[in-house]
Design a protein around this nucleic acid. Structure first.
Lengths: 175, 175, 175, 175
DNA sequence: TTTT
DNA sequence: TTTT
């Protein structure tokens, strides 16, 4: 239930591959940064200008898993969510704040994973249907991203990587 | 021109009276904090829970003047805008970041000013047409709200109050 | 699951009291018309112009019951939903189409019921908690609005009023 | 100026090539139909279901020209706009209503024109920069769509095609 | 009529 | 750090 409206709608591109972490409960939490940009012409000089805004987006649970599996650096997505400002302490104990978009809906706007220049070394996520549409696409081999993080398919065995607690998945820099 | 979509929609109530400042150019900049809240029942205990989110909203130019004149602590408004994260330095020279909603549209959702506990001394807000609807607004004398900030009608003479530069209207706390 | 985005956001006022109907399943369906308006100045004459847009909004299930109980002619609400165009046949058997907003979220933006000219006989809306916020709502007896439609609390006994089938709750005029 | 909020956000694919018309003033008006769809599983049978919603979107002026030049059947776009229901008379003189989304913003979400299976026979729109970003893409030859409509670049000479008046660009069927 |  |  909500009192007031707190809604964010973004369409942008991922700055890096998603970072998936798991909470003690086994629920996934995935963080991505999303770029949107404005371009305009300087009134004085007529020079084209550009400002890129970086948004910190966080996905939970099922969306987190989909994001972790299917999004890559460069992926273009639609995200709907709400703003949340978290308070945390930096190394020196000072209060700091980070504003994130907690995603409630996500759609991939490009079929490709995004960054296509990622080598060919890996296992592949073939035959998947991320968003739950239709039947398991025919696509033979989708190259897996270069990643050291655990495979999301097997959250149980990602033990060695200490599961992140809900309140420590923030680092001490905003992004 | 935009690349990507960066859109925020909020409906909430002001935490305090707006803070209006003027840029050297004479353009107004108004900051408000807006509360939205979520309520839910704790799954374990069934206890009602509430979390209030505070949004930092900034208005420029004409919207800034309307906001400064007509909004008050408690006012309920609709705001549409975009996210912008500003970088600034705290006292110790450390980089810090604040995320704001730069408003592109605003609508007042209650006729009254909002804050009902502002004493009984002043005249009310009769005969006003803040958003430009309605009849040509004969309003000879618009009653001023209780405020120590300069009257927006006369930004030129608000000199004594040192005009805020565009990049110093951030304090060293997020809100 | 959605392919694409189909989202509508409205803030406006109800043109009449809501019309609540019940499907054979006992589920409520409530229709309202919502006004939004644009005002501008004619470029030639400088005369203020106004155009009011009427939106047909439909609520289902719990939202339908809340709408039926708490909204009145004049109520200001926020509605979020999606567009749906229904096909139907007019008296002469011709295909016709009506576009509606199927609401997924609704918030009341004024405490009062809206229509203040609803006679003076009834007790007001005290002790209510329409949207489910706040404390368990002691409300012994919720005063009924002036309505000939069945009480939503007891859909089962609203028999005499022939329950509307899902596909006949459209009349032969758009609104 | 607006009273109330009337906002639509769509992400979908064009059902056909855009239809560009010109008003007597020379201003362009472009109509497209946009598909969004919902998929779900039938609760009883577990069968996957799909419902496609078709939206009638209208662009004016500069957006109309961009839409006419760069969008094609199949193009995926983001559209933001407002709802407008137009009244018109069918052949038999009966009042009918059509609801459209009047676009205020549009972004193309795929680089390609959309329908790629359109042969290579014609003149091409190479070296253009539709949305005003960056420098005129390198792309040598973009195949032009199969269309009988006039080239938008030369609205003046599209005479033979009788210019559509503002109020006759509706046909007698909704889409 | 689109798309996956 | 993305994208065109």
């Amino acid at each position: 239930m909500a009192r007031g409206i707190n809604k964010v709608i973004l369409v942008g591109n991922l700055g890096q591959d998603p970072e998936v972490k798991y909470m003690p409960s086994g629920n996934a939490v995935t963080n991505v940064t999303l770029a949107t940009s404005d371009t305009w012409k300087d009134k004085q000089t007529g020079q084209p200008q550009e400002r890129t805004e970086w948004h910190r987006v966080v996905f939970f649970n099922r969306l987190a898993e989909i994001a972790g599996e299917y999004l890559r650096k460069g992926s273009k997505i639609y995200v709907e969510g709400s703003l949340r400002t978290r308070k945390w302490q930096d190394q020196s104990g000072q209060d700091r704040y980070t504003t994130e978009i907690v995603a409630s809906e996500m759609q991939m706007l490009d079929g490709r994973g995004g960054d296509s220049n990622m080598g060919g070394q890996q296992g592949g996520y073939a035959n998947q249907d991320p968003m739950g549409y239709g039947q398991p696409a025919q696509q033979a081999s989708r190259p897996a991203p270069q990643q050291s993080r655990p495979q999301n398919q097997a959250p149980a065995q990602q033990q060695p990587q200490p599961a992140a607690g809900f309140d420590d998945f923030d680092d001490d820099i905003p992004f």
